[in-house]
Amino acid sequence: MRREPGRRRDLLLGAELALVYAFLYAPILVLVALSFNDSGLPTSWGGFSTRWYGELARSEDLLAALRTSVSIALVVTAVSTAIGTLLALGLERTVRSTVLDTVLFLPAVVPDIVLAIGLLSFFSIARITLGTHTVILAHVVFDMVFVAAIVRARLGYFDRSIEEAAQDLGAGRVATFFRVTVPVLLPGILAGALIAFTLSFDEFIIAFFTAGPTVITFPIRIYSMIRFGVTPVVNAVATLILGLSIALVLLALRLARREARRAVEG
């Protein structure tokens, strides 16, 4: 081991990574700090205060938008988790085709705006009135792909002999599926569900195009607030949303990892 030149290189690279972290987190931390700034101005510190959170709690239209987004995200999560899990099993076990894999995962790759205008045109030609249901349909199509990818990654660790054992012991195929396959995959499925919820809850562009004029999701509401100008309430909203997303994603990662470890160890 020639350590000397390697150590200097590591130091430089480590410093670069530290700068990357600073770049990624400084803007977020500034928002969090400003959300507790009594003056509400980005320019001067007026002391610690939670008044903007109070104002947020009293803002009827923000709360209504929040309710809309949560209910959309819940339905989308349920539907896309079910479809995505089945898709993962189907792709892993029945048809093994790279072409099918690639093609099915396209909704996650195509630029949002292309999918958004495609769906808007589709709904308008099919004479489907825009509303909550069209946002749900639009979100399901890319969320199911993410769920499928996550569940599929976990399927790699799946030991199918336990399914055979269940069938040898007299369980039917349906019973085996619900009492063996699903419970074993559950952490991966939950991880997929959490990611699906976050993606739907945060999604703006596709909802913006497919919601129609009456449905206002949380991101659509935030967008119009931001366009209007920098308001202190947005900082409070931003802090809460960032905290929620980070918590959900960390939970998803933890679930996915625990399952992987258990599969390897046991």
Binding site: L31, D202, V230, I241, S245
Partner: peptide, 21 residues
Amino acid sequence: VLVVLPFWTNLLIRTYAWIVL
């Protein structure tokens, strides 16, 4: 994970942070 975490948060809000900055 520290690198990827911000990516999973709201793009509108991450962009808004730069308006503030």
